[in-house]
Structures are given as C-alpha cells and as structure tokens.
Design a protein around this nucleic acid. Structure first.
Lengths: 335, 335
DNA sequence: CTGAAAGCGCTTACAG
DNA sequence: CTGAAAGCGCTTACAG
C-alpha cells in the first residue's frame, strides 16, 4: 500500500476542463473568473479533495502559513515565571493559541528562542508570538532584522514604541483588586510580588505605588526572590506577625498569602482579606477559595493570533490589545 | 530596507567554482565528491551562511523536517487528564519535546487532533507524537492511513501490537511504591486512582490488584470521578474514617490523600503513609513533602523524538521505550 | 474571461 | 569525480 498521492492542481484543471491558471485564480479569488467557472472549479476541487501543496506555494510565494510560538525561558529550568503566571494559565494560552492559529489557516510551531537572525529566518514562519520579551534576550531584534512580524504576550518595556502586545491591562487589574479589598473592609493593603524582571511585575508594582499615593496609604510591598520555594510564605508570615500588619493582601504569588495566614493562625477572610493577581486551580480549590482575576488566557491567545494574522496579511490593525479580565469574588474577600 | 534574501545554492556553487549538483552532493553527503571539493564547498557555504530552502527541498523530496505534537483533549475543556498527569509534567514534556526536536533538526508543530486522514496529510509533517491515544478517537488510524510514523506518550490499549510508545513502566512504578510503603511500615495500603479511560490508569489498577493478590492483601481501591474537584479528598477522608482504614496510600491524584489526612486529623507519616504516583510542585512543597515518582518528562520527550526520528529516517528502532522513573523518598513516608 | 509559460530553489537520475 | 537538465506543484505577469 503506497503513500496516498495527493491530488494536484493539474488534475483538478483537467477534471474541470480548464487550465491550472484558472483553477488557481478560482480557488484563491484572484484575477477574473466567471461565476460559473469558479463554481465548477470549486466543486471539482472539493470532489477530488484537492489541497494545494504548501511546499509548492511556499516556494513560489515565500509564504508559509505557519507561525511560531516562543515560550519564555525555554532553554533554562522550568523555574522563572512558571509559577508566577501559573502553569494552568500557560497551558490554556498554548492551547488557545494553537487552536486559533489552525482555525485561521495557520500552523503553530513551538520554537525555542532563536539565537540569531539566521535562526529566525530558518524557522520558516510568517510571524511569531513571543512570550516574555525581556530586555536581556534579543528575540525582538532578531525577528525585526528578519522582517518577520511579531506579537508579544507581555509588553517589552525596553521598546516603548512597540504596539503589538496582547494581554490584560495589568495596572487596571491591580487597581480593581485594591479597590475591591477596600470595599470588602480592608484598611491596610499589602502587595506581594515575585522578583522577576518581567514587565508585568513592573506594571503591577507601579500601579500599586500609584494607588497608595493617591489613597495616601503607606505602601507595603513584599518582593520575594523565589516564588517557587517556601520563601514567599515565610516572608508574608513575618509581615503578618510584624508591627502594623496588613489586613488585606494582593497576592502575586498565590496561594502563598493564604498559606501564610494559615501558618500564623490568622483567619481568611475574618482577620485578613486575600485576593490573587491571577486565577488558577490553587485559588479555585483552596479553603476558602481565593478571589482572583481571570487573566483570560483563552481570549489572549485568540486576540494574539488575530492580531498577528492582521499584521502578516497587511491589514494594519490597532494595538496593543487589552483583553477583558473578570474578577471572581470568592470567600477570601467575603466576610 | 528589504527583506534579506537568503543565499541560494547557485550562489554557493558559483563562489566555490562548482555546479549546484556538486554543492548538493557535498552538503548532503551523497554521491562521490572529492575530499577537497567537499571541504571547499562546506567552507563557502558556511562563509555565505547558506541554509537550503526547506520549501524547495520539501517540494522535491516530500520531506518536511517537521513533526507534530498532538496534545490530549486539545479541543475540549482543560479538564480531563490535566490534573492527573499534572500540568507541570506536561509543560516539561512539551518543553523537552520541542527542544529535542530542534536539536535533531526537526521543527515541532503543536497541532490539534486531526479529524480525517486528509487533515493529517495537510499537516505536512514527517511524523507525529500523540499524547493519550484513546480508543475513542482515531488519530492512530488517520496517521496510519496517511502513512505517517507515530510515537505515543501512552500505550494505546486498543492496539496491543503497537510498539512505539514511550513512558515510564507504570506497573513497575506501582510495585515500587507499594513495596516502599510496606518497607516504611505500612500494613494496609490503599490506592486512589482517577476515573479516566487512560491506559496508564488501567495499568496502575491492574498492577495494584496483582500486587495485592501476590501479597494476600485485600485491595482497597478508590476511584474518583472528578480528580479536579473536592471529591477525591472527601472520598479518601471517608475511607480513612471507615472500618478498617488503610495506613498507607498510593495517591494517583496528589495531593488529595495528604489533604484528606489533614482534614480528618490523621498525621502523615505517623498515622498514615502517603506516596504519590507522580511528582509535581504539590508533592514537593507540601508539608510534609510527599514521596513521589519522577515520571521523568524530560527523558520521555527526548526518547520520543529520538524514536520518531529513527522511524522517519528508516532506522528500524526497538520499542517500546521505558524511561527510568526515580522515586523521591520524602517526609510523607519517613517515620 | 482564460491559458501558455516562466520560475520559485532544491535534488536526482543520468551522462560524461 | 563532476555537471546539465528535468521536475517537484504551485502562482503570476503577460498575452490573447
């Protein structure tokens, strides 16, 4: 049993009684083809289950109908960022990106970070989605040099003019959490953030400080170096046992704050209110469940692919895209 | 600034003073090329940073140097299987698969499950790695029909003759856990498993029952329908409060067993020994940390790509591949 | 509105 | 050991 040979355009042409040119025109909506001819060609193509060869098309048009997704810190340990914008979020993001890409007619390549413009060109993609474009790596430069459109899942802080990022409006998210904690009865709200060189973290920190200034509240900012280990919980516990402890916490490394409250014998929500920066199985299944923001990875993935497709296909879209991020109010902030 | 044009084979040929044929032969190690000529061609190619066009090569050889990774349940909810073989494991598996593929000269496509042999052919890949090939979907059939080699991350139970799966030896893992729990002082060991139609679950169950028979121990098997929700913990708690409760548990949905012990006031490891079927942040960071098996997703990814490359390149490898899965003995089984 | 022809950049029998 | 030529399957000026 040989490998089934695919139908070629000449076969469609013969079956439809026209030239390959006309088949190509009809199928791609180019040139002038009479309505009847086009209909006939499409019917025949369908009937023979014709699928144009991507390789031939690529060779001719230098277009690959493929985009790359470049995950953060792909070649290092799982460590950085992985717990922060939790695994669950990433999985949904990946899933949504892949699904949307295929729906839009693109294939999704899962690529390691490139180490040169040549490596980027060698990927053979029409565009790319880059997670966590940090200043320290040069993905953005490489893709720019290779003239390949790029969309990012975080704002590249070192590129203030870069418009093609997609995600939640982090500053707004922080403000909403803070406002919610006040409304829920908090009077001194702390913020816990991981010590990562990520734009998201920077935005959260700044939004928090600005909010404190505006509300004339003293900032209580706890930055933890290792959000994976027990450090976060310990630091928060110390904070809670110290002078003038917070009675509300925005947790950027959930569920550390809840664990810390438990460990020092403080009740949530009675003694301390806790809200998480992002939703995850941990915030949903803890006791009490933790109020959290849904960073909406599914919508982020969809929007990113849409934006990238617009860029690739020359539609001059608007950017950046801020995806709606609903707050799930749960037991941890309901007295 | 135009898109940088890649070097073509003719340019290398001219620069090296030979024909494109000879360049091709030299670079691909085909035909007969004198040692000096080959060296010169390679130097020139390197010098001009020549990279053969994948599209042209694909058109000519029907080879794409691309493989697909097909994740489980990609088009349905995150739900099934996601907590079971935990997110963390999946991320590492994906990462390792992608990295290894690129190292071996393959690109990695993240594809949704195909719905027809035509869709499979349309993927344009030389081979595929399929996660969780359940009887209910037809991925294996589609790929077989499209004559595309496939490796799986679970054993397809409905295909007893299928040799190309890669993973831990589940039965052996279960036996080692059970033996360890006995050695640690357990006398009545229960097993908790998710209610999933997965070969892994089936293998674990069978290994457990066989072990019980061999040790003349009454099986205490708890199957939980929703490993994501609170059900698992509740069921185990009931078990612990019932007549003749277990004093050791192999947890297939960690950290439910530890949570259950806590909720009914039993101490781990003093009152109950707990060991998890797979390692994850949850088992590492709990208090006490939980003894667990490292399912070794990194090694699984590497082996799978190696195996698939062998299959694609016609090297007739041996299968299946059982990857070593070390046990991390932690506080939960150390009295 | 339709088609013949060229060409994208490789690899591979085949001839020398 | 080396090279001229054909051909993989498309798309696209161009001519009619």
């Amino acid at each position: 049993m040989p490998k089934p040979r695919r139908t070629r355009i000449v076969e469609v042409a013969k079956a439809a009684g026209v030239s390959p040119t006309t088949v190509s025109h009809a199928l791609n909506g180019r040139g002038h083809v009479s309505v009847e001819t086009r209909a006939r060609v499409m019917a025949v193509a369908e009937q023979l289950s014709y699928r144009p060869s991507r390789a031939a098309r690529t060779l001719r048009t230098a277009t690959t109908e493929t985009i790359a997704l470049i995950l953060p810190e792909f070649e290092t340990t799982a460590g950085v960022g992985v717990k922060t914008i939790t695994l669950d979020n990433y999985m949904q993001l990946i899933r949504s990106t892949s699904l949307t890409a295929f729906k839009r007619g693109y294939r999704l390549l899962l690529a390691p970070r490139a180490d040169s413009p040549a490596a980027v060109a060698d990927l053979g993609v029409d565009g790319a989605i880059i997670c966590d474009p940090l200043e320290s790596d040069s993905q953005l430069d490489f893709f720019a040099e290779a003239r390949i459109p790029v969309v990012t899942y975080e704002r590249p802080v070192h590129r203030p003019d870069f418009r093609w990022h997609v995600g939640a409006d982090n500053a707004d998210v922080v403000r909403r959490l803070l406002d919610h904690l006040i409304a829920a009865g908090g009077t001194r709200t702390a913020m816990v953030l991981p010590d990562l060189p990520s734009p998201t973290v920077a935005e959260c920190r700044q939004a928090y400080l600005e909010w404190c200034a505006k509300h004339r509240a003293p900032p209580i900012l706890e930055v933890v170096a290792d959000p994976e280990g027990p450090e976060a919980q310990q630091r928060i516990a110390e904070l809670l046992r110290g002078d003038n402890p917070p009675d509300a916490i925005v947790d950027g490394v959930p569920p550390s704050a809840l664990d810390a409250c438990n460990s020092v014998g403080l009740r949530v929500p009675d003694d301390v209110l806790v809200a998480a920066f992002f939703d995850s199985p941990d915030t949903r299944e803890s006791d009490p469940a933790i109020t959290a923001i849904d960073l909406n990875p599914t919508a982020v993935g969809e929007s990113a692919v849409d934006l990238l497709a617009d860029l690739i296909e020359g539609r001059e879209p608007d950017g950046p895209i801020f995806v709606p991020a609903p707050m799930y109010v749960r037991g941890s902030t309901q007295r």
